[in-house]
């Protein structure tokens, strides 16, 4: 049987989540953020700014008071967020239990693993530059002896993917090349090849001279096929239908689309 969750007051001045360029207006949104984006949130997420927001903007001093009593050190973070979710009716008991299990599993991860989870979460939210910064911090800092080479290779691959999303192909190539040097993996070589073609660069002889020419030919053929499909999809995209409409309509729609894309791209660069 369903139910209706009575909403609390929305804030006049929202809470800014800088990591995500997001503004939170209600306790329900805060609960949602914690539940689904916990990995993105820094360890010092519970601070005076958050508590003041809950108390003064959301007018929920009883919750902020409870958090103040509960949270005495960063070690109380997990228990505190679980308590916060329990105070808000947004999630059921079962959902909170699942969250509790997730947070326990997360806590068992090493610090580098948690940092990768945070970077992955940022990349998933298209905060590519933020993700790249964290990936690079892991790669440039001292290696954690508990982590094997595969761990760091994966980080480089993820970093390269983020560069690719930002169309920073030189950086992506540099990252992939490093991975290829360390692993010699054919999958990585293919990615290198694809990015070369995509960015209009000549595949580096030094990298590809030892590759099987038949394989290279196949990769090229695969690429052209994908490109042709993409062109067809562009023609069929609803955006293309726009140009059949009136000039005023086109202007209005393009302006809206441009703003949307600018916002999204701005977010990727944060």
């Amino acid at each position: 049987m369903g139910r209706y969750l009575l909403c609390t007051k929305e804030a006049d001045s929202p809470y800014e989540v800088e990591e995500l360029d997001l503004r939170i207006y209600s306790i329900e949104e805060l609960a949602y953020l914690i539940y689904y984006d916990l990995d993105v949130l820094p360890d010092d997420f519970i601070d005076e700014r958050l508590l003041t927001f809950i108390e003064k903007e959301l007018k929920m001093p009883e919750i902020s008071g409870k958090i103040r009593r509960f949270y005495t050190s960063p070690q109380d973070f997990d228990a505190t967020v679980i308590m916060l979710l329990s105070e808000v009716s947004f999630f059921t008991e079962q959902e909170i239990n699942e969250f509790r299990d997730r947070i326990v599993r997360r806590r068992r991860k090493s610090a580098p693993e948690r940092l990768v989870m945070r970077s992955d979460a940022l990349a998933k939210r298209k905060r590519y530059n933020s993700a790249i910064r964290l990936y690079r911090s892991l790669l440039s800092g001292p290696r954690d002896g508990r982590m094997n080479e595969q761990f760091y290779t994966n980080i480089m691959m993820k970093c390269a993917a983020c560069f690719g999303r930002l169309c920073e192909f030189d950086n992506a190539l540099e990252m992939l090349f490093q991975v290829y040097k360390e692993t010699g993996s054919p999958e990585v070589l293919k990615k290198l090849y694809d990015i070369c073609i995509l960015s209009g660069k000549e595949p580096d002889d030094a990298v590809f001279r030892r590759a099987d020419p038949n394989l290279l030919a196949k990769w090229q053929s695969d690429y052209w096929e994908r490109e042709a499909k993409a062109r067809m999809q562009v023609d069929e995209h609803p955006a293309m239908q726009l140009f059949l409409k009136s000039p005023d309509h086109i202007k209005e729609s393009l302006e809206a689309y441009t703003e949307e894309t600018k916002d999204a791209f701005r977010g990727m660069l944060e």
């Binding site: 369903g2 139910r3 209706y4 969750l5 009575l6 909403c7 929305e10 329900e28 329990s86 105070e87 808000v88 009716s89 947004f90």
Partner: peptide, 30 residues
């Protein structure tokens, strides 16, 4: 509705009220 952690019955209109003064507004999440 569920308010906080409790179920409650929210009154939107009470018998005996003036009809033109009877108005209720609330936000909810289904």
């Amino acid at each position: 509705v569920i308010q906080g952690v409790q179920k409650r019955t929210m009154i939107l209109a009470t018998a005996g009220s003036n009809w033109f003064e009877t108005k209720a507004a609330f936000d909810f999440i289904p």
